Simulated assay, not measured.
Amino acid sequence: MDLLSLRYFQAVARHEHISRAADELRVAQPSVSRTIARLETELGVPLFDRQGRRIRLNRYGTAFLRRVDRALAELDDARRELADAAGPELGSVAVGAETMLTLAGLLAAFRERHPGVTVRLFQSHAQEMERRLRDREVDFCVASQPLAGPSLTSLELLREEVLLAVPPGHRLAGRERVGIAELADETFVSTRPGHWQRALLDRLFAEAGLVPAITCEGIEPGATQELVSAGLGIGLIPAMSCRAAGVAPVAWVRLDAPGCHRTLTLVHRQDAYVSAAARHFRELAVEHFGGMPSCS
């Protein structure tokens, strides 16, 4: 039993699919199949139930996966700890986020202060961020909605108002505030379910006994302002965006609705080793978002 076999098993267990695991591992499918078969032979029990071309982790595989996850996590933590000892200003940090635009300023400041640290970014919705944290693929996730999972803890970075963006010349442009009921006949640009903007929009309308009419939904929250400016609809955008320079012009209106805000948090595993690079990133994230001005 070697480390490569355990990592192959971990990938197959996560996907419960040989081909998808092989794609993730960037190896040929037969190699993965042979490795799993050898591992089962060595252990003396099947780790998966086979139903035609489909496989499902069985009770032996589930028990083994718990141990494998723990063992590989310890080895990964040991590697990071040794890297810190060899060079505390080197190393790497992996971060997941709903949109890269939120992190642009933070990353620029981090690279300036710690040029020797490698940063890897993963754009993910909430469910995918939970999985990346669970599988220790990332050190942190910057999230705008709660992430659930054992051993996860969060640190609040920013709490900001969410505004309504409307195209220039729209009937609501020039208004200071507007209620949800006044938006019943409007069409919205939003994100797909699973993203915080969509969750907030659905909640605000549900509380008013309404359902929003969505004309455009996507996976990139940062594109909302461009689409609103182009006249495709109106949309909910965090106040952070109204401070950004060089973006598409829109008119900003405040919403008369309780809880119309975004809470940005830095989420990580409590039981994982925090490298020097990750500690530097966490400290700078608190400093960066804590110093942001309000949007007037």
Results as ranks from 00 to 15, higher is better:
Arg7Cys: 00
Arg7His: 01
Ala13Val: 01
Arg14Asn: 06
Thr35Ile: 05
Leu39Ser: 00
Leu43Gln: 02
Pro46Phe: 12
Leu47Thr: 02
Leu47Gln: 05
Arg50Leu: 04
Arg54Ile: 03
Arg59Asp: 14
Leu65Arg: 06
Arg66Gly: 08
Arg70Lys: 10
Ala73Val: 01
Leu75Val: 04
Arg80Cys: 10
Ala83Ser: 14
Ala83Thr: 10
Pro88Thr: 12
Ala94Met: 01
His114Ile: 04
Pro115Ser: 04
Arg120Tyr: 06
Cys141Lys: 02
Ala143Ile: 04
Pro146Asp: 13
Ser151Arg: 13
Ser154Cys: 09
Glu156Arg: 15
Leu163Ala: 05
Ala173Phe: 12
Gly174Ala: 07
Gly174Cys: 07
Glu176His: 10
Arg177Met: 12
Ala181Thr: 12
Ala184Tyr: 03
Thr187Val: 15
Ser190Arg: 05
Trp196Thr: 10
Leu201Arg: 04
Ala208Phe: 04
Ala208Val: 03
Val211Leu: 15
Pro212Arg: 03
Ile214Trp: 04
Glu217Gly: 00
Leu227Gln: 10
Ser229Ala: 15
Ile237Leu: 15
Ala239Met: 06
Ala244Val: 14
Arg254Ser: 14
Ala257Arg: 02
Arg269Pro: 09
Val274Thr: 13
Leu284Glu: 06
Glu287Asp: 12
His288Arg: 01
His288Glu: 01
Gly290Asn: 03
Met292Gly: 09
Ser294Cys: 11
